[in-house]
């Protein structure tokens, strides 16, 4: 079941497009914003609201990198693994993150605090290596800075 707030926001997006289905991506974003991820139940509820089948919506949802169809932690670390960050040594950052959090790419800490994901270029190549946690971008990373940064996220 979608909350009234979610429905209100989704309906707003629907109003902006010529066909209901066209709001599918916005709707997924809205629900993920509220719930962290898109469970099968959420997917079905959104699909029903948009007049789509679960298949049609999941086809869209699974296409994109940032719709999570599995539960994720409270904080999402997106580490850029693209070329400038490669040159500037994202691999060390990754190794260090693994040591700190004991998780690999695609995993979530047992306390659900962090999910760690690789991510293509974050558009801050002049300040590589770069990572994002939730809404915040951290540039010119060094292994030393990491611990400080992570502290901010409970």
């Amino acid at each position: 079941m979608l909350s009234t707030d979610e429905i209100r926001r989704i309906d707003h997006e629907i109003a902006l497009v010529p066909v209901r289905k066209a709001a599918s991506i916005e709707a997924l974003k809205i629900v993920q914003h509220h719930r962290g991820w898109i469970s099968d139940e959420s997917l079905q509820a959104i699909a029903a609201h948009l007049g789509m089948s679960a298949e049609e919506l999941d086809s869209v949802a699974t296409f994109y990198n940032l719709i999570f169809r599995k539960p994720v932690g409270r904080n999402i670390i997106l580490l850029c693994d693209s070329i400038s960050c490669y040159v500037m040594g994202y691999e060390q950052i990754y190794t260090h993150l693994q040591a700190l959090l004991h998780i690999k790419f695609g995993e979530t800490t047992p306390d659900d605090r962090f999910t760690l994901l690789p991510n293509p270029c974050l558009g801050s190549c002049d300040h590589a290596p770069v990572l994002m946690i939730n809404q915040d971008t951290y540039r010119d990373l060094t292994t030393e800075k990491l611990q400080e940064i992570l502290k901010e996220y409970k």
Partner: peptide
């Protein structure tokens, strides 16, 4: 409606 393509 119930057959589709998933992932990328």
């Amino acid at each position: 409606k119930d057959l589709d393509v998933f992932a990328a």
